[in-house]
Simulated scan of single mutants.
Amino acid sequence: MITYYDDRSVQVTSTAVRVDGRAFPLAEISAVWHRRGSRSWRVLAGRGAIGAALAGPLVAAALGIALALWLHRSPVVTLAIVGASVLVGLGVGPLADVLFEHLDRSYARGSRELEMWARWRGQPVRLLHTGDALRFGQIYRAVQRAMERAPQNASGSSGTIARPRSRP
């Protein structure tokens, strides 16, 4: 038996797909497809907030420099304001690494709910429902590999991977 994917709730092997304790033998699966839900505005708003947090200190630094030049104060005061503004702008450096990591994870997780469906014993069955796009992709590819390498099922075919359908 070959294991294509294994985590705490999903296992894909050369003989079956197991999801949350339920086993679906590959020989009884005739087709697999997936559906994408609508975009999550919460996720998109979170990405926008991260972008604003990245741009905020840089904008503050630029405004500080512009303010220092606009005030026409003594060179010492102007230099102090410009110096403080530059320090604020440089302060974004260590913070940027953390924020970019959160942004990267946000894109890996995705912004849609994803479902994997199979025709099992002639009936459509939802195998998986998740919002984690990276994990979903790994599981879906594992099921594809398992279906391609599976011996022929009871209907005489080795199963098919159907074209994806989006939810209206």
Rank of each mutant, 00 (worst) to 15 (best):
S166Q: 10
F24S: 13
S111T: 13
A45D: 08
Q11M: 04
R126T: 08
R42K: 04
P164R: 00
S9D: 15
A84L: 12
R165N: 12
R149Q: 03
I50G: 03
R165Q: 15
P124Q: 02
M1N: 13
R126A: 04
L95P: 08
S14G: 15
A154D: 14
S166F: 04
S14L: 10
S14M: 02
F100R: 15
F24M: 10
T160V: 02
R163S: 03
A142D: 03
T13L: 01
V32F: 02
T78L: 02
R22I: 15
V86Q: 13
A52S: 08
S166R: 14
D132C: 05
D7N: 14
A62G: 12
I161M: 14
R145Y: 02
R126K: 11
A31V: 05
G137H: 12
A66K: 05
A96N: 08
V143S: 03
S166I: 10
S14V: 12
I139S: 05
D7H: 04
G110L: 09
R145P: 01
L26S: 09
Y4A: 00
G21N: 14
V12C: 03
A154C: 04
V43Q: 12
A23R: 07
A133Y: 05
G51N: 10
A62H: 10
I81K: 03
I81T: 11
V12N: 07
A61H: 06
Q11Y: 09
V86K: 15
A60C: 13
T160Q: 10
L26W: 08
V98D: 08
D6C: 00
